[in-house]
Design a protein around this nucleic acid. Structure first.
Lengths: 257, 257
DNA sequence: AACATAGTGTGTATCGGATACACATTGAAT
DNA sequence: ATTCAATGTGTATCCGATACACACTATGTT
């Protein structure tokens, strides 16, 4: 049983090199074909999905641990990552009870105890460029793939709640910080950006007013290129002015609605 | 050495009944005489101050642990308490290095290791009614008292940063949620409420516009009483409509500026 | 080659909340 | 009785947000 050996090695590594009682969970948002996506993992030999997560090494900052987790699941290095809530209830089982969950995971008793002990879990959400992601499962999971936010199944633990809260936080963030730098390709059209906003907020907006508002923020740079290929008038391409974008992120002062 | 025995008992209790690597810190805001206050603790036999904190029992929800901490320091039971950030850097020493901090705390080596081991710390902030608080130090501290937010000294660990971030979060919260229920006495005047807002936000506002805005939220009830005693026209007393106030807290939808 | 189509670029009228501002009133102090 | 400082209330104005219309163009169609 090579796999079981690997598992044991993992447990030992966790016990010796990582902080006990604390874990990290990541809600990784991507944007593709007008849909907001979340990256989920499927547990080995089951049909059950959950959020990617990880633990914090004893010699590692917590944010660094979250970045590492994300790197391992997506292959991406520079990502927008933000802590949104820390989950600390004793009972974090929702759709399945603790014993059901244990059974589903199908792990040896001692391993299971380690993997799903009572943890304080720090939730992060990430915004990534869909096209650049290489979804990669880990030792405990068979599959890693994108799910449409609207079609997420009943997840293990309290992970559905985590996604809901992450989305809520993301929506609020939209009202005082710019967004899109990590979700869109470098060059994009105004309709692309609008579609992103509409998808996240779940509502449609007036095309003309949206453009005025975005431009008023002063973080966009219109290029002399246009996007061709569509059977219509070709739209201008824009890109973010990184410097002003970062400044807006910090000050949080530019935005209102 | 009765004290040392008590300390040892504390350490054992922490080790056996509480989660390792996680702690809680509380920024407790009060409001008095037009000033925003924070409750701080002074370490035994030192001049060094820090935030009240605590640990999470193995059989206790994290929020419950925070409430318990607050109850122990203030005597208050029903308080507004909100998680605002989790601090996870390895090095959380700021004004004093780790060894300086160790020295300052003057604890036996083994005790110190337990008390200031590397922790992930979940930060909460609380809003309490100043007059009802009975500041109470704990086993490790000599003194518990209010400090003016503007005059907080260099604290142990990264606690100054915690206060700064808590205040920042509180200010932002003011833009989408009502505030005051836990900071003001049951009956208060419009100028009282305005002073609270001005103190938190650090800016002055127009008296008439402020009143219009507050009343437009529909969470205030004007009483038939007036406050007498001031050498001026006596202002009306108001109180919050608890039900509508709670609803506004939940929806977060009523407020804008 | 001319036309139809659907999406894009841009400008203007209007509404509504936020802001600026003024005058009458009152309770205590003198 | 008078004075003073703070309170109660109303109105004009500003500005961003919203609603809305027409011209333009790259492709697909005939």
């Amino acid at each position: 049983m090579e796999y079981k050996k690997e598992l044991q090695r993992l447990i030992v590594d966790i016990k010796t090199n990582h902080l006990p009682s604390v874990s990290i969970d990541c809600v990784i948002f991507g944007f593709h074909q007008g849909q907001l996506k979340v990256l989920l993992l499927r547990w080995k030999n089951t049909d059950d999905w959950c959020l990617p997560g990880g633990r914090i090494r004893k010699d590692e900052n917590m944010d660094a641990a979250a970045h590492r987790s994300l790197r391992e699941r997506t292959g991406l290095h520079e990502i927008f990552l933000q802590q949104f809530h820390t989950f600390g209830d004793i009972n974090r089982y929702r759709h399945y009870s603790q014993s059901e969950t244990m059974a589903k995971l199908g792990l040896p008793e001692d391993v299971a105890r380690e993997v799903i002990s009572r943890d304080i879990s720090v939730g992060y959400y990430a915004l990534v460029e869909f096209a650049n992601v290489v979804p990669t499962p880990d030792l405990l999971t068979d599959e890693c793939r994108w799910w449409d936010v609207q079609q997420i199944p009943a997840l293990l633990f309290d992970h559905n709640e985590m996604i809901t809260l992450a989305l809520k936080t993301l929506r609020r963030q939209l009202s005082y910080q710019p967004i899109g730098y990590n979700l869109l390709p470098e060059k994009f059209t105004m309709p692309d950006l609008q579609q992103l906003y509409e998808t996240i907020l779940g509502e449609s907006m007036d095309r003309r007013n949206f453009q005025k508002r975005m431009l008023s923020y002063g973080i966009l740079e219109r290029l002399d290129e246009r996007k061709t290929g569509g059977a219509h008038k070709s739209p201008y391409l824009y890109r973010f002015d990184k410097e002003k974008y970062e400044k807006a992120l910090e000050t949080e002062s530019l935005f209102t609605a």
